[in-house]
Amino acid sequence: MMKRKPLFLYSLLCSLLWACVLAPSLSLAAEQATVAKQPWSFRGIFGSFDKASLRRGYEVYDQVCASCHSLRFLHYRDLETLGYSRAQIAALAARLEVEDGPNDEGEMFSRAALPSDRFVAPFANDEAARTANLGALPPDLSLIVAQLAGKGGADFIYALLTGYSEPPESFELTPGLSYNKVFKGNAIAMPAPLFEDMIAYSDGEKASVERMARDVAQFLAWASDPSLEQRKRIGLRVVIFLTLFFVVAFLYKRRVWARVR
């Protein structure tokens, strides 16, 4: 049918080009240094997260990032996806305190966090966060990879965390800011967060800056899009089903139309 009706094909191509190529290009913001693509295991049709890397990424978040950045859309129970047992999760949560209440006497009280609690934020509110960070607000990281999708997502996180260096001679750095080759304007309020061997990975992996950056970027990619694996798994089945259905429908249509041609 396509051969006989090129018109159909042209307009389809036109619209597809529009929908897929031109429209999304608008979200590509100007970047500083180029953000290199990393070989993430969660890329591609069959992609899935590297569980060991996710657990290490959680350790980096927990021991480094969490002192300033909240992760408010995640619950401790979500860590089960990373391979932690319920007892481990309960223990991880119990290290932190949350305010609860009021109790029977009308008083608010503190208790240990439960797996059903959201990740405890480091600051009570944005104002407290700004005050503690020289006026800069450390963003919540729950959706950071989705928010940075136009700049490279997890690739950008990795490039940012490994992109700190001394500023070039010619660069005038505002006091209190740090030089980063991928951040907009090359001056970022967050000081370089990662240093060689600053944490001890529980699986014994060596905590190089690149290793930690890669692990935490993957962890944040998971935090932004926790349904990725299930989505790709179902998607494959749906596409295979529809393709088989197409073959059946095609044979049926040809048989029906054979009567009139």
Partner: peptide, 12 residues
């Protein structure tokens, strides 16, 4: 839907 759910979405 399954492979590029945010492709047409603005990251902001």
């Amino acid at each position: 839907v399954f492979y590029a759910p945010n492709y047409l979405n603005h990251p902001d």
